[in-house]
Structures are given as structure tokens and as C-alpha cells.
Design a protein around this nucleic acid. Structure first.
Lengths: 153, 153
DNA sequence: GATAATCTTGACCGTATCAGTAGAGATGGC
DNA sequence: GCCATCTCTACTGATACGGTCAAGATTATC
């Protein structure tokens, strides 16, 4: 039931970019240092997020990454789905990653009912929370990530 | 965010045993056939569930498995935790499988807050649902699993 | 235009986990 | 004693995970 490290890194990187939204691009190197994410690995992840349309990059010297859309427009659900795949615990209750399962009678499977409830519960949280929400929370918590923002400005 | 096949098989097997609770032991072979689970793989899983105290076995000819406790006494949460590990999406919000994460300031991490909410949502479902609940649902759904029960009696 | 800093791309690698198989052994009913 | 069953350990093949490396393309700046 766990998120992979890759997914966690993606969210952490996006949070940094969201805190710097409207500013110039942020270098991979800076995100890497501030968030303790291996630089080369982070390159892959950010590049992948470009395919999602969540970030855009500027190449060359003074290059870097920035959000491609406003933070309130990017939900955690979309990020996790893109990086990890289904949010559902079993794929027979996933709507975008549905696969038939091996149980004898899917339509009348009591386990499936419960898993669907679990899925609903998770989706409800992840769909509601946007990067903008994370920024608000960060502000409320007075986190180190916020200090990052001030430093970046 | 997905359950492994192993975890799914465990639950399906336990459901069969729960539907036959009070009766004689059920053979691995029967569970295997009814639920489309590879027999040898199921052996491992059931054996593992014995360590949890959820099932007990009788050896030799006319041997098999049965629940070691009443179905209303076995929650999905306990099963999944035993077979899969943490229910939480990231281990820094898990209480029984806690591990510090690599982010700069765990105490003030806005992502952690959200993940804790997601965890709560899942735990709430899995902790509430017992094998007895699954049996009730099966009855209500009139599922093939129930037909299984009748056959077994 | 040379240079240096950055992103881009794709190959690569070691490890762990997953799903499943195999086989020898222990147990108990008949 | 026979045979069907559970028990236990080892093994395998595939895949994903986490991460590194190297060479190249792009662009700001001097």
C-alpha cells in the first residue's frame, strides 16, 4: 500500500516549484540539495513530470524547471497517478487502470466492495489536495521549505 | 499504492475459511481451485497466516485449514499489515512501521500531513471491516463464494 | 565565438521483491 | 503400510526500484 520513493520525490520537488511559482526557474541542483534527493535521479523524475504537463524547463545556462500550470491546478492525485499508476489497492476497482481480477465472480465479490471503499477514501484526499494547498499548509507550519522560498527570492 | 497479489490471495482464502467457519477444515486444494490461486503459492500464504494466529491447520490425510478465531475477530487491517507491512503510503506516517524520511523537516512537512490523512482514511476502512462483515456482504450479494459454502457443507 | 552551466537522453547496474515452482519430508486417517 | 495431506526450504525467472554514468544539445554570458 506504499508510495514508491520516486513518487515521494516527485511531490517534494513539485512543492519546491510551487513555493517558487511566478519566480524564475529553479535549478535541479538546488532542489536536489534542499530536499536530499539524488540529482541524477531527480532529473529523470522532473523530465517525466514534463510529460504530465505539470512542469516546463528552460535549457542551457541559467536553465531550470518551473511549474507549467498554476499550483491550484495540479492535484496530488494526478501526480501520483502519472508517476505510480493506480490509486486503488486492487486494479479491479480502478477506473483508469482497470484490469479484471482472477476471482471467480467479480461482480459479486465482497472484497471488491471493500476495496472500492478504500479507494474512494484515498482518492477523496488526493483529488482534493492541490499544490496550492500544500503551499498554504507549509506557510501555516512555518516549514523549512518556506525558508527555501525566501532564500530563492 | 497497490496491494500485492499475495495480499489479495490471503484475503480471498480467509474469506473462504470464514464462510466455512464452524465446519471441518478446508483443503488447500479446494480453496485453490475455487479461487483460482496457484496451490503451491497458497500453501506459503496460509502457512504465513498461521503465524498471525488467524488460521490453524490439521495435518495428514483429511487435513486442511480453518480459522483459528471467530471471523468477527479478524480485521482486514491486521491481515494486510501482516502480509504486506504498513498501510500508510509513506513510512514516516506509519505508527507500527515508522521510519524517518529524508525530507529536511519532518515535523513541519505539509506532505506528511496529507499522507497522514490518506493513511487515516484507509485505516478507517480496513480496521472496521472484519471477515464476518465480508461474509455478510457475500450473503447480501449472493455471490459465488456463498455457493462455495453450500457445496462445502 | 569560446566557455561554462545547465538540461536531455539513453544505457547501465546491483539489489530486492514478487509470483510462482519444485521437491523432500512429516503427519495422520484408513 | 499406503496415500493424501500439510510443512519447510530452496530455487527461479521476471520485473521494478533506486540510482549512476557518460555523451550530447542548448543557451547565457563574457
Amino acid at each position: 500500500m506504499k508510495l514508491s520513493v520516486r513518487g515521494e520525490y516527485a511531490i517534494r520537488a513539485l512543492l519546491v516549484l510551487a513555493l517558487n511559482y511566478g519566480e524564475e526557474v529553479v535549478r535541479i541542483q538546488d532542489i536536489s540539495k534542499q530536499q536530499n534527493i539524488p540529482k541524477k535521479f531527480l532529473e529523470q523524475i522532473l523530465n517525466d513530470l514534463k510529460a504530465l504537463g505539470a512542469v516546463e524547463s528552460r535549457r542551457g545556462a541559467a536553465g531550470g524547471y518551473r511549474l507549467a500550470r498554476p499550483p491550484q491546478n495540479i492535484t496530488l492525485a494526478s501526480v501520483v497517478r502519472h508517476v505510480e499508476g493506480a490509486l486503488a489497492p486492487v486494479s479491479c476497482v480502478s477506473d483508469r487502470f482497470y484490469e479484471r481480477c482472477t476471482c471467480p465472480d467479480e461482480a459479486r465479490c465482497p472484497i471488491r466492495e471493500v476495496m472500492a471503499e478504500a479507494r474512494e477514501a484515498v482518492v477523496k484526499v488526493m483529488e482534493r489536495v492541490t499544490l496550492a494547498d500544500l503551499c498554504e499548509r507549509a506557510q501555516r507550519l512555518g516549514s523549512a521549505a518556506q525558508a527555501t522560498m525566501e532564500y530563492a527570492i
